[in-house]
Amino acid sequence: METFIKKNQADKQLGLGILIVVIGSVFLLRNSGLDIPRWILSWHTIMLGAGLWMGYRKNFQGSGWLALTIIGAIFTLKHIVIFDFEISKITGALAFIALGLYLMLKPERKINFQNTQQEKKADFSDLNT
């Protein structure tokens, strides 16, 4: 158990270190005169990255990471222009398609009801004394 905790802590430090190096590299490239788009370090891109990171950490179980990812993706896609085509025109449709695919492909939760109906017998033996 102790080695698992140490490995988990090492993974967190590695991920945080990579994130800080990437952010520092983007700042360095931007300050060096390279044309880096503003949306790369905006709040919605950070929200998108945080949602994906949370999903990765939880093996993409639950839906908290999905909400962050969808909101971040919608606002990030509004600022991306590829080949003079604004992706913001199709962002809503892409969000619905992604949500539908998630609902279709998410793993099913199987609830076992066999152990929930156990009989519990009352013990009144100490009342007779």
Rank of each mutant, 00 (worst) to 15 (best):
N31T: 06
L101D: 10
F75L: 09
W53S: 11
I90Q: 12
F85S: 03
E119D: 15
L68T: 01
L127V: 07
F124A: 07
I97H: 08
A95E: 03
L29A: 06
G55D: 03
I46A: 15
W39Q: 00
G62K: 02
I80S: 05
K6L: 12
I23K: 09
L94I: 03
F113Y: 12
A50F: 11
Q13C: 13
A98F: 09
I74P: 01
T76W: 04
I46G: 13
S88Y: 04
K89P: 14
K121T: 12
Y56D: 12
W43R: 02
A10I: 08
F4K: 12
G51E: 06
F124H: 13
F4D: 15
K121I: 11
R57M: 11
G100I: 00
W39N: 01
W65S: 01
E86R: 06
K89W: 13
K89A: 13
I90M: 11
I71R: 03
G33N: 02
I70T: 10
L103A: 11
L66R: 05
G62A: 04
T69H: 05
A95C: 09
Y56K: 03
H44A: 00
G55C: 04
Y56H: 08
L28V: 04
H79C: 04
F83H: 09
Q61V: 04
I46F: 14
A93C: 11
I82P: 13
W43N: 10
K7E: 15
K7W: 15
T129A: 13
Q118K: 10
L103Q: 13
R38C: 07
F124I: 02
G15L: 09
K78W: 13
Q9G: 10
V21Y: 09
K106V: 02
S25E: 09
L14S: 14
I18W: 07
E2F: 07
A95S: 08
K106G: 08
E119L: 10
G55N: 05
E86A: 05
G92I: 04
L66N: 05
F113Q: 10
E2L: 06
L94M: 11
G62T: 04
G55F: 08
L16E: 14
I18T: 06
N115G: 14
W53M: 07
D126G: 08
I5E: 15
L68P: 02
